[in-house]
Amino acid sequence: MTTVLAPVAHLGRMTLAMLASLGRVALFAMLTISHLFRPPFYLKEFAQALMTIGYFSLPVVGMTALFTGGALALQIYAGGARFNAESVVPSIVAIGMTRELGPVLGGLMVAARVASSIAAEIGTMKVTEQIDALVTLSTHPMKYLTVPRVLAATLAVPVLVGVGDIIGIMGGYLVGITRLDFNSATFLRNTIEFLEAWDVGSGLVKGAVFGFVVALMGCYYGMNSERGAQGVGRATKSAVVAASVMILATNYILTELFFTS
């Protein structure tokens, strides 16, 4: 009987562990939000995080958006040709980039680049006792390490998404006029005419949520890193995986909220 029930017991343990982990992340998130509004504020650390997370992520987000926009134009043209709807390419590229691909791919690229580096940095600080040193120097690690990064990512990722949207549409435009024989003026007119403010706005809101998630996961796994190189490696991997999954999950929830009513 015990052997028969062993897989069920294992599943139960895994579910409980997952729920406990979700609870810890939720508590960590609430603690971070509460510290956002309580001094002291570390403006220099915030500015540094803004540069690292925002400015230095621009090339990778831009390249991703450029190629995605180009590939999207080719795919929509090929698909649309089946029912003589090639003319929808500009509007679908614009809507697809601003609502979905810009924020999601931008968020995932930032997750790969930023969640990993935050988790590795804070994890290393933990195992080398730098976090304990911060405490003994009367500095709250949450305020000094987590809050500036989470705030910077929440503000920087929407900007990255906005820039990525423009570059992605530009990628579609370049492919459209060079490979698909679109007229430049027609392509631009169709893009502008069909695009609504909320298409862009919803993507920017998603970007803010994804930025929050990415930095939060990096900080959470870094702060909870186990000892040694293996512990830091595991924290880094977990941060990227958790951030990526949470981006996709919150993207679905936000899309339901924004577009199904």
Binding site: T124, M125, T128, E129, Q130, D132, A133, L134, V135, T136, L137, S138, T139
Partner: peptide, 27 residues
Amino acid sequence: LLSRFGMLFQGGALFDSLPVWHNVAFR
């Protein structure tokens, strides 16, 4: 309480991202 203490950690626990003087003057 902590303002009354100073601590030398086993591995130094210096902050990698800050120059030496800033580490010393952190508090």
